[in-house]
């Protein structure tokens, strides 16, 4: 049954900041191996939606299930759940006090997922796959934006998560560095990673996404395959948005 494939189940998710309603009831299921791109105007709540999925923001109401874990339940050991959800941020957030290899090794070693030797081996392999094996000993401040983001992706993968969340991973990059980061993400998608990607890269969404969600004012206004959304959008707000960005 398809139900068994649901990795993330979100039901009527609402989030308020003070009196400000940011999410007004989002319901969505994300399946194993699916790549879901979330698009929408600034301030629409798409980043907040993503941050609710691993509990960086706590939901005001509604239900979020990742696997069988209820994210917005105080009894859930959120740290344990997060070990299986990688996250990549707009501003990379590499640990500035550590070199690249230590950035990758910190969590696996500290959380006793691997010995130092194992973690180092995995980290080097991951750096090779993102094309940065030669930067293992560099500090984040010595890397370009694109390199930082590729390290950040490798760092998230070092915990071998089964879900990856991307929060506008290319928005802070120089245009010429966007490609190298998207290439890494495409590889990930090809290898069957379950991914939720908040992005302004419509080309990426069109090419890689299995499904696209258009979020505006805290609700999913429209969802469908990239073809449905990009070539045949139905909601006037979606049409308007796509006309502006494409």
């Amino acid at each position: 049954m398809a139900e068994n494939n649901v990795k993330i189940h979100v039901e009527n998710l609402k989030k308020k900041f003070g009196n400000n309603d940011v999410l007004n009831g989002i319901s969505v299921d994300i399946h194993l191996g699916e790549v879901v791109c979330v698009i929408g105007p600034s301030g629409s709540g798409k980043s907040t939606f993503l941050r609710c999925l691993n509990g960086l923001e706590s939901a005001s109401s509604g239900e979020i299930l990742v696997g069988e874990h209820r994210i917005n339940d105080k009894k859930t050991n959120i740290n344990k759940v997060r070990e299986n959800i990688g996250m990549v941020f707009q501003h990379f957030n590499l640990f500035a006090n550590m070199n690249v290899i230590d950035n990758l090794m910190l969590a696996p070693v500290d959380l006793k997922k691997a010995t130092k030797e194992e973690a180092r081996e995995t980290a080097m392999k991951l750096l090779e796959t993102v094309g940065l094996a030669d930067k293992a000993e560099s500090f984040p401040s010595q890397l370009s934006g694109g390199q930082k983001q590729r390290v950040a992706i490798a760092r998230a993968l070092a915990m071998s998560p089964d879900i990856m969340l991307f929060d506008e991973p290319t928005s802070a990059l120089d245009p010429e560095m966007v490609g190298e980061v998207l290439a890494v993400m495409k590889d990930l998608a090809k290898n069957g990673m379950t991914m939720v990607v908040v992005t302004h890269e419509m080309g990426f969404a069109r090419e890689v996404a299995d499904r696209v969600l258009f979020i505006d004012e805290g609700v999913v206004l429209e969802e469908g395959t990239p073809d449905e959304i990009f070539t045949n959008p139905k909601h006037p707000r979606t049409i308007d948005f796509l006309n502006k960005v494409l």
């Binding site: 960086l56 344990k80 950040a152």
Partner: peptide, 13 residues
């Protein structure tokens, strides 16, 4: 930068 804390938390620390 609060992003440093967030990144560490997102890894499960």
């Amino acid at each position: 930068d609060p992003g440093q804390m967030e990144a560490a938390r997102s890894l499960g620390l």
